[in-house]
Structures are given as C-alpha cells and as structure tokens.
C-alpha cells in the first residue's frame, strides 16, 4: 500500500505561478515510494500536465480575470496519481478542441491533446461555481487501454 498524499493549493489567476505549481507536482512525482516506471519522465509529465491544465483554467476558464483564482488538488491514493484543477468560469467543450490531426500550423489548441496523451483518464465537469478538469495517472502496471471521458 503506497503512502497517501494530498496537496491542496489555491493560487491567484496569474501565469507567474505556473512554474511553482509545476515544480511542486514534479517533486511530488519524484518522491513516490513505489513507482516502477521512468520516474524522471513521470515527473516531467506531471509538471507539464499541471502547467497545461492551470494555464487553460486561467486563460479559458477564468478568462484572465485577476480577481478569480485556481484551486489545484494533487493526490496519490490506491496506486493512482490524481490531479484536479478547478476554475471559476463558464467552461468550454473539451471535445470540440482539435487534436494533432487538426491544422498543424495553429498557434493554439495543443494543451488538451498533450494532457490526453500523457494521462490515463481525463474528465472535464461543470460544477455549481465553475469547472474541474480531472486527470488520473495509474502508477502501477500500465492499463490495457487509456480511457478518455468527459461529461457536461
């Protein structure tokens, strides 16, 4: 049974905090006691998906409003690493975003694709006061297939 860890962070809607939270996620991944895969790679990927999800929440969810904030929860439980990123905005349709097969020369639209590639489960849900993007990475044997679901 791995150690249970939960980290809760609330940050202002400012991109200057991206590197701070990404680094916290990276260090947490490096400290996992039972991970059989490439720990350095996992840590880099956790930094990356945190950066992508929080930037998305700040820019698209909270529409760059400095009065809003972003709430991040990083948890390790039952051999899964679970990240929740909550914004206070109107939300967007995660399934309407282009994948890499879209216009190769678009300036935007790669963030969710990167998250979907690197995490095992990705969901985006509407809450009473915002939205939550939840991402799960299995830390034990690689799952037979990746799941990608979303709800309204």
């Amino acid at each position: 049974m791995p150690d249970k860890i939960e980290v809760n962070i609330r940050i202002p809607n400012k991109t200057r905090y991206l590197s701070l939270i990404g680094q916290i996620g990276e260090n947490l991944a490096l400290a996992l006691d039972k991970y059989g895969g490439d720990r350095e790679e996992l840590a880099y990927h956790i930094n990356l998906v945190l950066t992508e999800a929080i930037a998305n929440a700040m820019i698209h969810g909270n529409v760059k409003d400095p009065a809003k904030d972003v709430h991040i929860t990083i948890g390790v439980d039952n051999e899964c690493l679970r990240i929740r990123v909550r914004d206070q905005g109107q939300g967007f349709d995660i399934n309407s975003l282009p994948g890499p097969e879209g216009n190769a020369l678009d300036d935007h639209g790669r963030g969710i694709h990167i998250i979907r590639c690197l995490m095992d489960e990705v969901t985006y849900r509407r809450l009473d006061d915002g939205n939550v993007l939840e991402m799960v990475k299995c830390l034990s044997p690689v799952p037979s297939s990746k799941r990608d679901t979303s709800s309204e």
């Binding site: 678009d106 300036d107 935007h108 963030g111 694709h113 990167i114």
Partner: peptide, 16 residues
Amino acid sequence: RFIDSSGLGALVSGFK
C-alpha cells in the same frame, strides 16, 4: 528544459 503548448505555439507563430 521545459516547453508547454504555449511555447510550441509561439515557435509555430514565428515559423509562419
């Protein structure tokens, strides 16, 4: 050491 989709997008913008 680290690049995200915004960084990639900036390079694509420069390329164009």
